[in-house]
Design a protein around this nucleic acid. Structure first.
Ligand code: ZN
Ligand code: ZN
Ligand code: ZN
Ligand code: ZN
Lengths: 138, 138
DNA sequence: TTCAATACGTTATAGCATAACATCGCCGCA
DNA sequence: TGCGGCGATGTTATGCTATAACGTATTGAA
């Protein structure tokens, strides 16, 4: 879960706190999870967290996992250069693996072009068990 | 929005009502949307809708769109034979196009095998504008 | 008939997200 | 220096999404 500690310095206080919470978590956190972790730092209302998350997601420092209603720190410094990002979410340990695949993206582009569909955003989330958890279950 | 009217006959009353609501909608419906449409038929509580939806999704007659917290009728009679299904959701008119792509699925399988990840379920949702809505915007 | 499985109905509650409004601090500019 | 815009913040209230917990009813075998 390589989390990048070289966080941009121009984050606001709340943004920094939220980013820190995400960076120090092994798995995704809901906005309310984050809020609970940050009450000691003075945060009190969900909106404070949501507003920070909006900015972080906008800047590509964090991602929203639609299928979990939760958020993770971006694990790939350069993911904003890539188009489609996929997430593999382990139901066992909660870890999230982030990856990009040019072939899938191209294939999707082909489909869109054929249909005249203008893609604005794609979410791809794979649920299952990671290697470690598969081994443990056996 | 080809909705299949040859719905299985063994649905329960509530399941049938919910399926009907989905079939007659041009776009996705939230559970609460469905509830409102079915109050006249006697449904009163969210749980009645959610329980029906669970069964319908389980049988592949409906799909849940994670990025919308909403549900659509399955548009492809044979989609349960296919693996990965993708949804293209138009932000303009709300229509949803359901399709399967073997290449994407294979590519995903390759990634999973390389990583030792055991895939259980995949959601792929593309947000954007359909051909009609793109034309209108121009 | 008896039992188990499934569906149903109802109330209450938990979890996720945003509206609306006031305030504050920063920075560019008259 | 003082004004004014803008973005971030703080706070309260509210709305939307989903499930827990309980009891009843129906069905369909053994
Ligand atoms: Zn990323
Ligand atoms: Zn795992
Ligand atoms: Zn389908
Ligand atoms: Zn459209």
């Amino acid at each position: 879960m390589a989390h990048s500690h070289d966080v941009p310095a121009d984050l606001t206080r709340n943004q920094g706190l939220v980013m820190g919470a995400l960076n120090h978590s092994v798995g995704p956190l809901s906005a309310y999870d984050i809020l609970d972790k940050l009450r000691a730092d003075g945060l009190r209302a969900p909106l404070q967290v949501y507003r920070a998350l909006d900015k972080l997601v906008e800047r590509g420092l964090a991602h929203r996992l639609e299928s979990l209603n939760a958020f993770v720190a971006c694990a790939d410094e350069h993911c904003h250069r890539k188009g489609l990002i996929a997430f593999a979410i382990c139901e066992g340990c909660g870890k999230v693996d982030e990856f990009a695949d040019a072939v899938i993206e191209e294939r999707l582009g082909d489909w869109a072009q054929a249909k005249g569909f203008k893609v604005e955003r794609t979410t791809m989330e794979i649920r299952g068990k990671c290697e470690v958890c598969v081994a443990q279950a056996a």
